[in-house]
């Protein structure tokens, strides 16, 4: 590689995010969108590393939530109590934040939480691929929430849903200005919602990779290895907290739709 020749050691912090097909190599020059060359590009049905790691996340979720709870024991085994803890945690969150009307969207919130949590945690395995570090994935997740909440709000509350932007507690003169700000902040929601998740994971994994790259230099390698260890611990925390934050923000947005137009 050119970088090796240039600087003596190579750090490619972004290489871990490359989407690759599993069963073939993309020939160089067969996928250059700038020149309208697409024949070597990844097809929508192709099995890529994204597919593999999402499938692993699904399998892990099924293993935990279905086989873990298969005992249906009144006195739960360890794995069953983990299931019940996650269930109770998310159920309580949905009930607390969205109120009683929001409980029927609990399975969807649970799906999001489990998918993000398991993708984040599986992404921390060495040599793995973090699906939630990709903007395409998180934007899709955030847009599903955004569109879902908007459509749900309009269907449930009709035009009254738009009253959310009209802050009736503010002085009349300020209301149009506030309405514009509210509308902007409403449409920025999916952006921040998705970029937060992808950015956190991307940043953490890239930083880990950079420090791991420093480990090839003998002088600073003990420091680098220690730093990677410390950051790994932090990333474990971030993985869980980001799943939690994504879920609780989903609940907060959901409250606007099911809780009526009051602000």
């Amino acid at each position: 590689m050119t970088d090796v020749a240039e600087t003596g050691f190579a750090i490619h912090p972004m290489d871990q995010f490359i989407v690759k097909p599993i069963f073939r190599e993309i020939e160089p020059g067969t996928c250059v969108p700038a020149e309208d060359i697409y024949e070597g590009c990844i097809k929508w049905y192709e099995i890529t590393n994204v597919t593999v790691w999402m499938a692993l996340a699904v399998l892990a979720i099924v293993a935990l939530m279905v086989f873990g709870s298969a005992g249906r024991a009144t006195i739960p085994s360890r794995i069953q109590s983990v299931c019940e803890m996650i269930y109770g945690f998310i159920y309580k969150m949905v009930e607390d934040v969205t109120g009683h009307d929001g409980v029927k969207y609990f399975p969807y919130v649970m799906t999001l939480f489990l998918f993000i949590l398991f993708s984040n945690l599986l992404g921390l395995l060495p040599m793995s691929f973090t699906t939630t570090s990709h903007v395409a994935v998180t934007v899709t997740l955030a847009l599903l929430v955004f569109l879902g909440v908007t459509i749900l709000g309009l269907v449930k509350n009709g035009i009254g849903f738009l009253g959310m932007f009209w802050v009736s507690s503010a002085p009349l003169a300020l209301r149009p200005v506030l309405a514009i700000i509210e509308v902007i902040s409403y449409f920025v929601r999916p952006v921040s919602h998705s970029i937060r998740l992808a950015g956190n994971l991307m940043a953490g994994h890239a930083v880990m990779k950079v420090f791991a790259g420093f480990a090839s230099m003998a002088v600073i390698s003990p420091v680098a290895v220690g730093a990677v260890t410390a950051i790994y611990g932090l990333e474990l925390l971030v993985a869980v907290v980001q799943a939690y934050v994504f879920t609780i923000l989903t609940c907060v947005y959901l409250k606007d739709a099911v809780g009526g137009a009051h602000h």
């Binding site: 969150m93 607390d96 934040v97 921040s192 970029i195 937060r196 950015g199 956190n200 991307m202 940043a203 890239a206 907290v241 939690y244 934050v245 609780i248 923000l249 907060v252």
Partner: peptide
């Protein structure tokens, strides 16, 4: 604690935006 995490998430998101610009 829920409000704590939401607040942290909002504050952190803005930092992540600048990190994104850097990237």
């Amino acid at each position: 604690t829920a409000n704590l995490f939401v607040g942290i998430a909002f504050a952190e998101a803005l930092g992540i935006f600048s990190f994104l610009i850097a990237l």
